[in-house]
Design a protein around this nucleic acid. Structure first.
Length: 662
RNA sequence: GCUGCUGUAGCUCAGUGGUAGAGCACUUCCUUGGUAAGGAAGAGGUCGCGGGUUCAAGUCCCGCCAGCAGCUCCA
C-alpha cells in the first residue's frame, strides 16, 4: 500500500513467520525439473535461526559461511559442494520413503539454505517416530545401493515412465521443463527420480544427516493445489559439523523471544484477548519507554514534530486513501456508529494527510516532518501470528515528510542518517537495498520515478551509504530503500524503510504554493526506523538473548546485602542510585545470599553488587558486571559515575575486569 | 486460511478409562550466609472451553479457542 508497512510486507513479496526474512532460494519450476530446481531470486522465509543468503545452484557453501563464524568453526569441505550432498541426501530420503510406503508420490526435493526437504503425497500422516524409521532405512539403502547413475531420456519416454509409476506430480514436473532441455533421471538401487542434478557419485561416502521436522506444503506453493507432507532434514560432511549445527539450533531456541518473554516476565499473549495481541509487562514496558524516549529525542533533534491521530476514523477516509480498495482484506471490519461505518486504522498516513490539508501550505514551510508512534491494526491470518514478531496490532514508528522535489535528496539523506544512527545504537549491522520501479503496475510519470530514485541514491551517497539494487522491487506508488539488519546471531530481518509516494498526495489533493505562486503537489516520504515496536523489541530480545545493555535493562543494578544487618546500607545504596534515576533492585529479603545472587543473574541484571560490613564501613560497593567479567570494589560515587557514562553513551558493553587469560 | 502436532499448578513437564503428580517458583519457620540454587513444612489445578460416548473421561469422539512447525497470502 502506499504507506509504510512493517517487516516482510515492506519487501512486497517477502513473507515469514519467525524472523528471518530475506532472499533465499526457492524452486522456480524448471531450470531443473523435479527435484532439481535452479534457485530463483525470490523472497522466502528460511528456517528460524538462520541467516539468509543469495544462493545459486551449486554454491551451497554460502549458508555455512554465514553460519560458521557465529558458531566458531568452519564447515568441512567435502568432495562435492554441501548443497550437492544435501540434494543427494534428499533423494536418499525419498528412496527410503518409497521403500516404506510403496504408494508414495513425490513432489520436489531440493537442497535449501541449511539442509533439504522433500514433498511427499502419502496415504498416511507421518509423525516424528516415522522420521527415525526413515533414517534407518536411509542408512540401509546408502550401504546397499551406494552408486548413483544419471540417465538421459526423451520427453515422451520420461512422461510415459512416470505415468506408469503413478508419479503424477513428476509427470507435471516434466511438463514444466522447457522444450529443448535435456531431461535426466538419477537413480540408486530401485530409486529412479526425475532430476537435473548434480549429485554426489556415491552414497557410501562419509557424511552425517538428520531428519528434522514435518510440515505441510502445497504442491508448487499453490493453496489451490493439494497439500503434501514435507520432511525437512539437513546433512553435513562430518558428524562434528552436524553436531555444531544442531547445537546452534539449541542456542537459537534459548534466545527465542517467546521463551525469554515468559522466563523474564517481559510480555504475554492471551487466548482471552485473541491471537496476535501483545501485552507488555512492566519489565518490558520500561525497555519500550527507554526506546521511545531515545526515538523521540532523535526525531525532535532532527526537526520532526510529534503529531497524534485517532485509532478510528470514518470508512470514507480509507476510501479516499485507497486503503479500502487495495488493503481492505487486511483491515478490521467496519463498526457502525450513527449509521455510519467506521474503521480501525491500518496505517497512519491518511490521518497525517488530513492534518496537512487543514490549511494552505507554502513552500516556505516545507519540509514538514511529522512523526507519530501510531498504533495500527491489521488482520493477519490465524496461522501466521508469531509472538511479538508478527501480530495483529502494533505500534509503528511512523513519520511522513512533505517536501519539494528539490528537497528530496537532503530529506532522504537525513532519514538514512537517522536510520544508521538508530540501528547501530542497538548494535545491528545492516544492508540497504534500493528498490526501483516495478515492471508491472505502477503509477506516476517516468521522469518522477527517475528523479525520486535518483534522490534516494543521491541521499545515500551524501551520507556515504552503500546501496544494493533491488531491481523492480519498489512499491507501485514509488521507489524505496529497505534495510535488512543482521542480529547478534547473524540472522537477517527487516524493519526500516524509506519510501517515496506519488500517490497519496494526489488522492488527498495535497498542495503547496511554490515561489512562483503555482500550486504544486508535495512529495510525501513515508519512513519507519524501527518498523513496529513489537517486532523491533521482539527482535531485540533475541539479539541480546535477554541481556539488555545497561541503558535498556529493566533492572540495571541488583543490590544484595550479605546479612540482614547490612540491609540498611543496601537500602541507602539503592536510594542513592535511584535518586539518579537508575533502576535498582534491592534484594534485602532474608533468603540465602546465593539464592538471591542466582535470582539476579537469572534476570540478567547488568550489575550485581554485594554489600557487607566492609562496604558499609568504607562506603563502597563490590561490583560484578553480568557475565564472566570479574569484580571490583569502588566507592558508590565512582560506580554512579561509571553507570552514568554507560547510560548516556548507550553503551552496548559492560566493563570487563576479568583477569586476562594466562 | 491450509496440513500436522500440542494444551495438566505461575514455569518446565509426568500421568494412554477408575474421582490428579514432580521439580522450580510462591508462603511460613529454621539457617546469618562474602559471589551461580541451605533445610523443613505449607499452599496452589473445574486437567484450554463446550458438547458427546461410557457405570466412570485429564485419558476416547466431535466442535471451538489458543499455541507450535511449516505452507499460503500480505500494496
Amino acid at each position: 500500500m502506499r504507506c509504510i508497512e512493517r517487516g516482510p510486507t515492506l519487501l512486497g513479496r517477502a513473507r515469514g513467520a519467525p524472523y528471518a526474512w530475506g532472499h533465499s532460494p526457492v524452486p522456480t519450476g524448471r531450470d531443473g525439473g523435479a527435484g532439481c530446481p535452479r534457485w530463483g531470486r525470490s523472497l522466502k522465509l528460511v528456517p528460524r535461526g538462520f541467516s539468509v543468503n543469495h544462493s545459486s545452484s551449486g554454491s551451497g557453501a554460502s549458508a555455512d559461511e554465514a553460519l560458521a563464524p557465529a558458531v566458531g568453526g568452519a564447515v568441512a569441505e567435502g568432495p562435492f559442494p554441501l548443497s550437492t550432498l544435501r540434494h543427494s541426501v534428499s533423494h536418499l530420503m525419498a528412496s527410503a520413503v518409497a521403500k516404506l510406503w510403496p504408494e508414495a508420490k513425490f513432489g520436489f526435493g531440493p537442497s535449501i539454505e541449511h539442509g533439504f526437504y522433500y514433498d511427499l503425497d502419502l496415504p498416511v500422516a507421518l509423525d516424528e517416530s516415522d522420521l527415525k524409521r526413515i533414517e534407518k532405512e536411509m542408512r540401509r539403502i546408502a550401504k546397499a545401493s551406494p552408486e548413483l547413475t544419471c540417465t538421459e531420456m526423451p520427453r515422451d519416454e520420461a512422461r510415459a515412465r512416470l505415468e506408469a509409476l503413478g508419479q503424477t506430480y513428476k509427470v507435471e514436473a516434466v511438463d514444466l521443463i522447457p522444450e529443448g532441455e535435456t531431461i535426466t533421471f538419477y537413480s540408486h538401487g530401485d530409486w529412479f527420480d526425475l532430476c537435473e542434478g548434480p549429485h554426489v557419485d556415491r552414497l557410501d561416502r562419509p557424511f552425517a544427516f538428520k531428519l528434522q521436522s514435518l510440515a505441510g506444503a502445497y504442491w508448487r506453493g499453490d493453496e489451490k493445489r493439494p497439500m503434501l507432507q514435507r520432511i525437512y532434514g539437513t546433512a553435513f560432511w562430518s558428524e562434528e559439523d552436524l553436531e555444531r549445527h544442531l547445537a546452534w539450533l539449541e542456542e537459537v531456541k534459548t534466545r527465542d523471544h517467546r521463551r525469554l518473554g515468559t522466563e523474564l516476565d517481559l510480555f504475554s499473549v492471551h487466548a482471552e484477548a485473541g491471537a496476535g495481541f501483545v501485552f507488555w509487562h512492566p519489565r518490558l514496558g520500561i525497555v519500550r519507554h527507554e526506546i521511545e524516549d531515545f526515538w523521540w529525542r532523535e526525531h525532535i533533534n532532527r526537526g520532526y514534530q510529534p503529531v497524534y491521530s485517532p485509532h478510528v476514523s470514518r470508512e470514507q477516509l480509507f476510501a479516499v486513501s485507497g486503503h479500502l480498495e487495495n488493503y481492505g482484506e487486511m483491515m478490521y471490519a467496519a463498526m457502525d456508529l450513527d449509521d455510519m461505518p467506521y474503521r480501525v486504522k491500518p496505517m497512519n498516513c491518511p490521518g497525517h494527510s488530513l492534518i496537512y490539508k487543514t490549511r494552505g501550505r507554502s513552500y516556505r514551510e516545507l519540509p514538514l516532518r511529522w512523526a507519530e508512534l501510531g498504533t495500527v491494526y491489521r488482520y493477519e491470518k490465524s496461522g501466521v501470528v508469531h509472538g511479538m514478531l508478527r501480530v495483529r496490532g502494533f505500534t509503528q514508528d511512523d513519520a511522513h515528510i512533505f517536501c519539494t522535489p528539490e528537497q528530496l535528496p537532503d530529506e532522504i539523506a537525513g532519514v538514512l542518517d537517522l536510520i544508521h544512527h538508530v540501528l547501530t545504537t542497538f548494535g545491528f549491522q545492516y544492508t540497504a537495498y534500493l528498490a526501483t520501479r516495478p515492471a508491472e503496475k505502477s503509477i506516476g510519470e517516468a521522469d518522477i520515478w527517475e528523479r525520486a530514485t535518483k534522490a534516494l541514491a543521491d541521499g545515500a551517497a551524501k551520507v556515504g551509504m552503500d546501496l544494493q539494487l533491488d531491481e523492480g522491487g519498489g512499491a507501485f506508488y514509488g521507489p524505496k530503500i529497505d534495510f535488512k539488519v543482521r542480529d547478534a546471531l547473524g540472522r537477517e530481518w527487516q524493519n526500516s524503510t524509506v519510501q517515496c509516494d506519488f500517490n497519496l498526495p494526489q488522492r488527498f489533493d495535497l498542495e503547496y504554493t511554490d515561489s512562483s505562486g503555482n500550486r504544486v503537489r508535495p512529495i510525501m516520504v513515508h519512513r519507519a526506523v524501527l518498523g513496529s515496536l513489537e517486532r523491533f523489541v521482539g527482535g531485540l530480545i533475541e539479539h541480546f538473548g535477554g541481556r539488555f545493555p545497561f541503558w535498556l535493562a529493566p533492572e540495571q543494578v541488583a543490590v544484595i546485602p550479605i546479612r540482614e544487618e547490612h540491609g540498611e546500607y543496601a537500602r541507602s545504596v539503592t536510594k542513592a542510585l535511584r535518586a539518579e534515576q537508575f533502576r535498582v533492585r534491592c534484594m534485602d529479603e532474608p533468603s540465602h545470599m546465593n539464592k538471591r545472587i542466582k535470582a539476579a543473574q537469572h534476570d540478567r541484571v547488568p550489575f550485581l553488587t554485594i554489600v557487607g560490613a566492609k562496604e558499609a564501613e568504607d562506603g563502597t560497593v563490590a561490583i560484578r558486571p553480568r557475565g564472566e567479567r570479574g569484580q571490583r570494589t569502588m566507592s558508590l560515587q565512582e560506580f554512579a559515575e561509571l553507570a552514568r557514562g554507560l547510560r548516556s553513551s548507550r553503551s552496548l558493553d559492560l566493563p570487563n575486569w576479568a583477569e586476562p587469560a594466562p
